[in-house]
Amino acid sequence: MKARSYMSFYEENPSCDKVDLLSFAKLDFNMVQKLYKKEIGSNTKWWRELDFATKVPYARDRVVEGFFWPFATNSEPKYSTARQMITKLSICISLVDDTFDVYGTVEELELFTKAIQRWDIQCIESLPDCFKVIFNAIMECWMEIEVFMNDVGGDSNLVLQHVKQAFSNIVQAYMVEAKWCHEDYIPTYDEYMINGILTSGSPWFTTVFIALGEFASKEMFDWISNIPFILKASSFAGRLTNDLSSHKMFSTNSRIKKENSMK
């Protein structure tokens, strides 16, 4: 988006080199944009083929929104495959989030959390099909990552170990929130923010970014696993910004409903 603005500003500049520099910039912009559209199209096809809209009807369609996470982090063409895989995982996180927020009972969510911790679908054999659909989609992502890492000569065992653990951590944090809600428990600020580090998604996303980028090493994963201060601070900022926005939206909707009911 910034590149598009820069070209517009530059085109109006009297010293603009329209023959070479601007033409090249527009050509490069269009080629890369075409690649991004192809990536979103691929992820949209995946969403439709797995039929999430029917099989997980309570979940939000956030394909394009999910794409913006990896896209904003690494927009270079060489990261195309990684972007598509991270988008799928982001969507899976969203599906899990919606399941914890609006669908599953505490008992069902506990079984689902256990299945994620053990990566064993037998733990959720008794649950509704939507849980199995989400679980299988996540497992397919692990297989894709394994193939990708083998293709690029990476350590698939190391990567999968840490990515799976990061995914499990965020699901366990969702479980904590679900129990708070079920028990009508209002956590202290410290309790909420400690858990909020994980539910912000930052530790998980940073782990995946490292895993599928060029920095995957045991030392780097260990550093991220310990939640360094810079990651903790960004997680706090993300968690509070998200919650303040949600609170304002909820307050506005409640006020509108109240005003409409009084008419």
Rank of each mutant, 00 (worst) to 15 (best):
I124D: 00
L212M: 06
M262Q: 15
V208L: 15
L89S: 03
F67T: 00
I121H: 02
G41D: 09
N30W: 04
V133C: 08
D222M: 05
S42G: 02
E125L: 07
G196C: 05
V56G: 01
E65H: 08
F167S: 06
F167Y: 12
E140Q: 15
W142F: 13
M1H: 12
K88W: 05
V106Q: 08
T207W: 01
N169V: 04
M149S: 06
S254D: 12
D20W: 05
I194D: 07
K263T: 09
N195M: 10
V133G: 03
F29S: 09
F9L: 14
S261P: 04
L111T: 01
D28S: 15
I116W: 01
C130W: 00
T241N: 14
D129L: 10
L50M: 11
P70M: 05
Y189R: 14
D120I: 06
L111H: 10
L160S: 06
P57S: 13
D97S: 10
E214Q: 15
A211C: 11
H247M: 11
S75N: 09
P57Q: 12
A237M: 10
S75T: 04
I40W: 01
D155E: 12
D151L: 10
E146G: 03
G41F: 07
M262D: 11
E49S: 13
A166H: 02
N13T: 10
D129K: 12
T81N: 14
E107M: 06
S202T: 11
V171Q: 03
D120R: 08
P203V: 06
P70L: 03
Q84C: 12
T188E: 12
I194V: 14
L50S: 06
I138E: 00
S156K: 13
L89W: 02
E146M: 04
T87L: 05
